[in-house]
Amino acid sequence: MRVIEDNHVIDGKQVEIKRTIPKGAAPLKDFKTKKIFVGGLPTALTDGEFKDFFSKFGKVVEHEIICDHSTNRSRGFGFIVFDAEKTVDELLAKKGNKIDLNGTQVSLRWCFLNFCEP
Rank of each mutant, 00 (worst) to 15 (best):
M1L: 09
M1N: 08
M1P: 12
R2D: 14
V3D: 03
V3C: 03
I4H: 11
E5G: 11
E5S: 15
E5T: 11
E5Y: 14
E5N: 14
V9L: 03
I10K: 00
G12K: 01
G12F: 02
K13R: 04
K13H: 07
Q14G: 00
Q14L: 08
E16K: 07
I17H: 02
I17R: 07
K18Y: 05
I21K: 02
I21F: 02
I21L: 06
I21D: 03
P22L: 11
P22N: 10
K23W: 15
K23L: 15
K29S: 05
K34R: 04
K34T: 07
K35E: 05
F37H: 12
F37N: 08
F37W: 09
F37K: 08
V38Y: 07
T43W: 10
T43D: 13
T43K: 03
A44M: 15
T46P: 04
T46K: 12
T46I: 10
D47K: 07
G48R: 13
G48A: 15
G48H: 14
G48M: 14
G48V: 15
E49F: 06
E49M: 14
E49Y: 10
F50N: 01
D52C: 04
D52G: 02
D52K: 01
D52W: 02
F53D: 11
F54S: 00
F54M: 04
K56W: 03
F57S: 05
K59L: 07
V61F: 10
V61A: 10
E62A: 04
E62W: 00
H63R: 01
H63V: 05
H63A: 06
I65L: 01
I66P: 04
D68F: 00
H69T: 11
H69C: 12
S70K: 14
T71A: 06
N72P: 01
G76K: 11
F77I: 00
F77T: 01
F77W: 01
G78N: 02
G78W: 01
G78L: 07
F79L: 02
F79M: 00
I80E: 11
V81M: 10
F82E: 04
D83L: 15
D83I: 14
A84T: 06
E85F: 13
T87L: 00
V88Y: 12
V88M: 13
D89L: 07
L91G: 02
L91R: 09
L91T: 05
L92G: 13
L92E: 13
A93D: 14
G96T: 12
N97P: 00
N97A: 05
I99P: 14
L101N: 01
N102V: 13
T104W: 12
Q105S: 08
Q105D: 10
V106Y: 06
L108Y: 08
R109K: 14
R109D: 09
R109A: 13
C111F: 09
C111H: 05
F112H: 14
L113D: 10
N114A: 06
N114I: 12
N114H: 09
C116P: 08
E117F: 09
P118E: 09
